[in-house]
């Protein structure tokens, strides 16, 4: 197994308040290709901050972050944007689909991001493949306002998958969905891991977490592996 992500001693301190607050305290985590990891914890425990650091939205104050064996903890923003485009796919609790665009155009947003240029025909092919992977290719021309919550989240997953990311980062992707629809969304995310994509899922849902390869608890900024389920 190839190690995709290796965090060691990641610390993040929230400044700008009367007393600085440690959000992440020496976090260590490894994720291999095709592996799925669930991160669970109470609200405010630092789950989203950890995902921000992993997704290069934010930088750690201390610690080492290796992606594909390269140290990237102190990466300039321009290179970080490039890595976000080439290595990561993001799925959020809210779907963040643009209402004025069709499903296909929303997915294509990840391809029209200034990181290389794909001709229109190739873009179209890849967008339809991504929508097909999550089972909604027939909705390519539909606008988000005409779709159900589950369909919208699957469009968001297709957007995350369209660039063939190495790691999928999902921040409570089922939080706004009913149980049945949430299960379908987790199915779609796990299907990606079968193609070699790593998955980090932040969730409150024990059932969804139980479907992941590993579960980590984040308590007061400290990450601990709970049990190896599979």
């Amino acid at each position: 197994m190839t190690t995709l992500i290796a965090l060691d001693g990641i610390t993040k301190v929230l400044k700008g308040q009367e007393q600085p607050r440690t959000i992440l305290d020496g976090v260590g985590l490894t994720v291999d290709a095709g592996q799925s990891v669930a991160i669970v914890g109470r609200s405010g425990s630092g789950k989203s901050t950890l995902l921000s650091v992993i997704g290069l939205f934010d930088r750690p104050d201390q610690g080492s972050y290796q992606l594909d064996g390269q140290e990237i903890a102190r990466l300039p923003e321009r290179r970080a944007a490039k890595l976000r485009s080439s290595h990561f796919g993001f799925v959020f609790q809210r779907f963040f689909l643009l209402k004025h665009l069709t499903a296909a155009q929303n997915v294509a947003m990840a391809l029209v991001n200034g990181q290389g240029w794909l001709p229109r025909r190739q873009r179209r092919t890849r967008v339809l493949e991504a929508l097909d992977q999550v089972g909604i290719a027939h909705l390519a021309k539909s606008r988000p306002t005409k779709m159900s919550g589950g369909e919208q989240q699957r469009v968001a997953i297709a957007r995350a998958l369209v660039r063939d990311p190495k790691v999928l980062l999902a921040d409570e992707p089922t939080g706004a969905l009913d149980t049945e629809t949430g299960t379908l969304v987790i199915d779609a995310l796990l299907a990606a891991t079968e193609r070699g994509c790593g998955l980090i899922l932040v969730t409150h849902d024990r059932d969804h977490a139980a479907r992941m390869g590993r579960i980590h608890d984040l308590v007061d900024g400290v990450l601990t592996e709970r049990v190896a389920v599979r």
Binding site: A81, S85, F90, M109, N113, Q115, R159
Partner: peptide, 16 residues
């Protein structure tokens, strides 16, 4: 705001 933040999340550089 959300659209631009999302675009950054998918790798769009600030300059774009």
């Amino acid at each position: 705001v959300e659209e631009f933040a999302l675009r950054r999340a998918v790798g769009t550089p600030r300059s774009l």
